[in-house]
Design a protein around this nucleic acid. Sequence first.
DNA 1: GTTCCGCATGAATCGATAG
DNA 2: ACTATCGATTCATGCGGAA
Lengths: 300, 300
Amino acid sequence: MTTTLNRELSEVVSSNRLNIDTIIHGDCLTILKTMPDTCIDFIFTSPPYADNRKKTYKGIPTNRYVEWFLPISNELRRVLKPEGSFVLNIKERSEGGERQTYVIELILAMKKQGWLWTEEYIWHKKNCYPGKWPNRFRDAWERCLHFTKKKKFKMFQDTVMVPMGDWAEKRLARLSERDKIRDESRVGSGFGKNVSNWLGKQYVYPTNVLHLGTECGNRGHSASFPVTLPTWFIKLFTEEDDLVLDPFMGAGTTALACIQLKRHYLGIEMMEKYCDLAQGSINKWNERINNNNNIRQLSF
Amino acid sequence: MTTTLNRELSEVVSSNRLNIDTIIHGDCLTILKTMPDTCIDFIFTSPPYADNRKKTYKGIPTNRYVEWFLPISNELRRVLKPEGSFVLNIKERSEGGERQTYVIELILAMKKQGWLWTEEYIWHKKNCYPGKWPNRFRDAWERCLHFTKKKKFKMFQDTVMVPMGDWAEKRLARLSERDKIRDESRVGSGFGKNVSNWLGKQYVYPTNVLHLGTECGNRGHSASFPVTLPTWFIKLFTEEDDLVLDPFMGAGTTALACIQLKRHYLGIEMMEKYCDLAQGSINKWNERINNNNNIRQLSF
DNA sequence: GTTCCGCATGAATCGATAG
DNA sequence: ACTATCGATTCATGCGGAA
């Protein structure tokens, strides 16, 4: 491991009150209750969505979702450091032709619980499923609800800056339909010149709308979100060696993001199948890193 | 006028119970109460957002917003036809470091009132207000809440289809930061080729995320949303000659969209200043249309 | 007739200052 | 202590004037 333990974290770990860089198999609420107060720097998770279909292995019924989640969010608030953040990736499905309301009810309930609802980021899924229904289009976005314990919290905005203006989009915006056609015939000259002007421009701060594709590579598992999603928030809300918690770890995507960013992780997952899957991904990644290191050593 | 009156609408209008293709100066709730039942095909509006700052000429305080809006939405439901839709464009500001909750409270309250919350579209504002703060990024999106009276409602999805794959976005999504820089050196070849691919592409259904810039700048008036926003929804939820209502007409953007799409409109606006502004825009547009017709007649 | 550059203008938000 | 006001910050866009 290239990550290190800061003194604070080191004490908690050595006293055996906290596992880190592992995936714990078990019930989220039970495990959370064994953890010490204010030891987590950042929480990112995508909990199971509400689902009334009985067949689903562990769908929580819509009308009981809030009461199911509140004890968990209460524990999350307890284990989170005062300056920490909690990002909840969630999106209500539609049922009987209407959007379900349990997510917005949850926001109100968590505020009563003491959380601050600081912001709602939009994850725009660029390459989402095609599909069409008589009363709606494809659902191409999910909520990333940002909760904190205090008004002031850790945030490192410089780490997620983006190139100024979306150069291709910007160019397109100015071109009329006719101009687009005209430009086709004189590629190479005028067009290229302009593109070079846009590059090398400053970086600017992003907005609260994230444009990320869904992960298309189905390597035997289906992660509910791409690794770039937790990556963005982890860069934004933590520093190296910080400890990130995902209480519904699933396929281990949050853990992978942590490893890549040199953050410590702690995952909780109830299904053993997913624990194994996540650990497999992690091992695979670590192997690749080691191989790369070896190659680098050989080539010098 | 190129629009016509269908029999149903014609009866209501001739009996003097309903004005159409006008902007009525007055209080929204008062005017609504004079209108007959089920005469409107579609409602699009962007009401004044909640604002606790006293100086603002008529901001509705956050904690009283829901009770202020409910009587209005009740009338809106009454005047809307059974198969009609209501799209509410709104976004809560942040206050005291948190997002306000009155919008999500309004959704829950309107459901109790009998509305169906069918969908939440996202308007992604490409050019959002600038600024930098320690705890958040620029707010680049607004809600377009879709309410209906019944599960089945009028929707014409084919009218808003878009060219398959925005090639620029798609391309950007795939490019890593390094690839973007590399692309600089091979502009001219691949770039123009893609432009030509755009043409003749198949059309596909859009998603529930709309990418539109705000119309800012020196046009003499400032509309809070671009004409393309109501245009999109009017095409989606109405046919020609249908009647569209905007109970908070403002600068008249919804009316302009209607005229361009050959729909009838009915606007309500409390501030005389805005009534004049809206009527001015409408007259200007109609003049331009007439001029164009003249030119066309001359050139043939 | 083009293209380029400068500039005003936003449904913003926070922190400091003043009452 | 609590509330109202003001200045600083920031960036995509469209317009007008200049080359």
